Computed example of a mutant assay.
Amino acid sequence: MSKKRIIAIIIAIVIVVGGIVMSSISAFVTTMFNDSSSTAMDPFTEKIEKEGDSSKRIAHLTLNGEILEGTGGGLFGESGYNHESFLKQLDNVKKDDTIKGMLLTVNTPGGGTYPSDEIYEKIKEIKQKNKKVYVHMESMAASGGYYISAPADKIYAGPQSMTGSIGVIMSSVDYSELQKNLGIKQNVIKSGDHKDILSSSREMTSEERSILQSVLDDSFDRFVNIVKDGRDMPENKVRKLADGRIYSAQQAKSNGLIDEIGYEDKTIKALQKDIKSKDAEVFEYTEGGGFFSSFSDMKMSVSNFTDSFKDIKSVINNDTKTEPMYLYEG
């Protein structure tokens, strides 16, 4: 038996055994958490940032990290963003009648088209409740970060913020030459010519490229319309700006993608004035502490490790899970 085959068998055994162990741990922790949290009324507590009028409040939400579905970016990922938690916070803002405005601090290169659109729709629902929504951009609010910012009543950005990158991207890796050099062949049985359209084991055909481009064009058109409606901007101007490039805060203000340049305190003051309450209480949501929080953290850690394990397995197995992204790749 060749060394390559022995190594492949060892890797396969590690993956299978590791997958069983991690799945068992994840299931155990999930069960304990679900049973324990059934008595918890709300996973969030409110932390006051600025004392003031509690009948006219401003909810301060922060989106930091790549916009991904689920509860985190994985063991080896850089994102600490929790999509499920963030959507629940947006729901709380929508339902709470004492909240008259929302400040959304954004620091993200964007992310998945689907979770970005979920956030967009939640923000639209909040606005339909006659609540003001202001966005403050920190270091970066690009692509999906701009997508979710576009419906805001006002967009502020710091002097050194970067934004824009309006567009969609999809990419995959072609391992075919490497597999050829290693003497590895993949047997594919498929029901249609394009079932393995993003296979990493062969070159993409021109027809397949056209098919995928048509999918991206639909997502891009939606992005353009969202910017057009949110910024009250002619479509031809949006398309001219939407060539994928990023803009400085100064450029973005000049071309109409943001309203003002300033820091968070300036944004809050403007929002307080807009809701006609210069003394409005400002608060943020924090994860509830104690017993339930500990189980939540444990569940998230196991979930992140399992996701990372699956990512490694996916690379080894040459699986392709490429999807359209509203993401700035710098």
Rank of each mutant, 00 (worst) to 15 (best):
I6T: 15
I7E: 15
A12D: 05
I13N: 04
V14A: 13
G18D: 07
V29P: 08
V29T: 14
T30A: 12
T39R: 15
M41E: 15
F44K: 07
T45N: 11
K50L: 09
D53L: 07
L61N: 08
T62W: 01
T62E: 10
L63R: 01
I67G: 00
T71C: 10
G72R: 00
G77Q: 05
N82K: 11
V93A: 04
V93L: 03
K94F: 03
D97K: 12
T98F: 06
G101I: 06
G110V: 00
G110P: 01
G111I: 04
G112E: 05
I119E: 01
E121T: 08
I126V: 12
Q128A: 13
K129C: 02
K131T: 02
K132W: 11
S139I: 07
M140E: 11
G145A: 06
Y146L: 00
S149E: 04
P151Q: 02
I155K: 02
A157P: 02
A157I: 00
G158L: 12
P159H: 07
T163V: 10
S165P: 04
G167I: 04
V168F: 03
I169H: 05
S171H: 08
V173K: 15
Y175S: 08
E177V: 12
K180H: 09
N181M: 11
I184W: 09
Q186V: 11
S191C: 01
S200N: 14
S200D: 13
S201L: 09
E203W: 06
S206I: 12
E208S: 13
R209N: 10
V215G: 00
D217N: 15
F220D: 00
R222I: 08
R222N: 10
F223A: 05
V224F: 02
I226E: 09
I226T: 08
M233W: 03
M233D: 04
E235Q: 13
K237G: 08
K240T: 14
Y247D: 07
A249D: 09
K253I: 03
K253M: 07
N255A: 03
I258A: 00
G262Q: 00
K266L: 14
K273Y: 05
D274G: 05
K278F: 12
D279W: 06
A280F: 10
G288S: 10
G290K: 06
F291C: 09
K299L: 09
M300L: 13
V302M: 04
N304G: 09
D307C: 01
F309H: 10
K310P: 03
D319T: 10
D319S: 13
K321M: 08
K321W: 09
M325W: 01
Y326E: 02
